[in-house]
C-alpha cells in the first residue's frame, strides 16, 4: 500500500468516526427530546383526562330537578333550596345573571350545590344581585331583566331551573340579550304554565327600560350636579335612588318591582358583608355559614369539601308567606310610567 493510499484510508476512518460520533450525539438528543415530549404528554394528557373526568362527575347531578328538595321564596326575594327541617351548613350564593365568572361558577359548581341540597348535606341559599345595575346598557339592562325574571320564576317555584337556563343563555358582555320573548320561553321550558309569569316578565322589562334609558341618566346628572363622585360611590345605587326621591328625580315607578328588589338585595349584601376577609367584593361570592369561600368555590369538589367541614348553619332570612300558595307571595303588579 502506498503512502497516499494509507493516508486516504486513515482519513476515511477518521471521517467515519466523526460521522458515528455525530450519529450518536443526534440519537442521544432525539432520545432526550423524546423523553421530554413523553413528560409533556403524560402531564397534559393525564391531567386533561383527570380534569374532564372530574367535570363529568360534577355534572352528574345536572338537570335532575325532579330530585330537588323544595324551593322556598324568602322575604327579600332570595330562594332557599333545602329539605324540610334539614340541619346543615348554609351556603349563600350571590350571583349576577350577566356576570361571566358567575356562569363559570354555575357550570362548575351548580350541579354539586343542587346535589348537596338534595342529599340534605347543605341548605343552598340563592341570592341574586345586580352588580351591573349602574353600568352602561345593555350590560345593566340584561342584568336587571334577568334578575327580575328569575324572581318572577321564584313565584312559581321554578327559580332553580330558571337560574340554570339564564346562565346557559347568558349574553356575551356588551351585547343585547335576555330578550323578553326568550325570558318568557324559558319560563315555559322551566315548567311554568301560569300566564301571570309572562305578564310579570313583560311589566318588569318595561321597568328596566325606563330605568336604564330615562331614569338613570336623569338621576346621574342630578347627582353629579349636587354631589361629588366619592359621595355618589358611598351611597350606592339604593342610596342614590333614595336621594333622588328627595331631590326631584322621581323613582316611584320602581315601587314594588322586582327590579327594585334586586337593587335593594345588592345594597343589603354590601352592608351584610362590609369589611374584613368576608367583605363582598363582586360576583360570584359564596359564603358557607357566613365565611367567604376562595377560588375553591369554582369546583364542585371544592364546594363539597367546604360544606363537609362546616357545622350546621342558619338561614338569615324569613320565608315570604308561610303556608300560602306560590302566587300569594308575588308582589302586586308594578305600575309602569313612561
Amino acid at each position: 500500500m502506498g503512502k497516499a493510499a494509507r493516508e486516504a484510508s486513515r482519513e476515511r476512518l477518521k471521517q467515519e468516526r466523526e460521522r458515528a460520533k455525530k450519529r450518536a450525539a443526534r440519537a442521544k438528543m432525539l432520545g432526550v427530546v423524546g423523553a421530554a415530549l413523553a413528560v409533556v404528554l403524560v402531564v397534559v394528557g393525564g391531567g386533561y383526562l383527570f380534569l374532564s373526568q372530574q367535570r363529568a362527575q360534577e355534572q352528574e347531578f345536572a338537570d335532575r330537578y325532579e330530585d330537588l328538595p323544595p324551593q322556598t321564596l324568602q322575604q327579600d326575594g332570595s330562594v332557599v333550596l333545602a329539605g324540610k327541617g334539614v340541619e346543615a351548613p348554609a351556603v349563600e350564593v350571590y350571583a349576577d345573571f350577566q356576570c361571566p365568572a358567575c356562569k363559570q361558577f354555575e357550570n362548575a359548581s351548580g350541579p354539586t350545590l343542587q346535589q348537596l341540597a338534595a342529599e340534605g348535606e347543605a341548605i343552598v341559599h340563592y341570592r341574586p344581585v345586580s352588580i351591573f345595575a349602574q353600568a352602561e346598557a345593555p350590560l345593566s339592562a340584561n342584568s336587571l331583566r334577568g334578575a327580575a325574571a328569575a324572581r318572577a320564576a321564584a313565584d312559581h317555584d321554578a327559580f332553580v331551573q330558571y337560574n340554570d337556563l339564564l346562565f346557559e343563555n347568558q349574553p356575551p358582555e356588551g351585547s343585547e340579550g335576555f330578550a323578553v320573548e326568550d325570558l318568557k320561553q324559558w319560563g315555559e321550558d322551566a315548567g311554568i304554565d301560569d300566564p301571570e309569569f309572562a305578564e310579570r316578565v313583560e311589566a318588569e322589562s318595561k321597568v328596566v327600560a325606563t330605568f336604564t334609558d330615562d331614569y338613570m341618566p336623569r338621576l346621574r346628572s342630578a347627582a353629579q350636579e349636587q354631589l361629588n363622585e366619592s359621595e355618589i360611590q358611598e351611597m350606592g345605587l339604593a342610596g342614590l335612588i333614595e336621594w333622588g326621591g328627595d331631590n326631584g328625580v322621581d323613582g316611584s315607578f320602581l315601587q314594588d318591582t322586582y327590579v327594585k328588589e334586586v337593587i335593594d338585595a345588592t345594597a343589603a349584601v354590601k352592608d351584610r358583608y362590609s369589611s374584613g376577609a368576608n367583605a363582598f367584593g363582586g360576583t360570584p361570592s359564596v359564603y358557607v355559614n357566613g365565611e367567604k369561600m376562595g377560588d375553591a368555590a369554582f369546583s364542585g369538589d371544592g364546594v363539597r369539601d367546604a360544606v363537609q367541614q362546616a357545622e350546621p348553619g342558619e338561614v338569615s332570612t324569613e320565608p315570604l308567606a308561610a303556608g300560602a300558595g306560590a302566587d300569594a307571595g308575588a308582589s302586586p303588579e308594578p305600575e309602569v310610567s313612561p
Binding site: 365568572a101 363559570q104 361558577f105 362548575a108 359548581s109 375553591a296 369554582f298
Partner: peptide, 10 residues
C-alpha cells in the same frame, strides 16, 4: 380549578 382558567381565556 379549571373553571377559573376557562373564564380567563374567554
Amino acid at each position: 380549578p379549571p373553571a377559573l382558567s376557562v373564564q380567563s381565556v374567554e
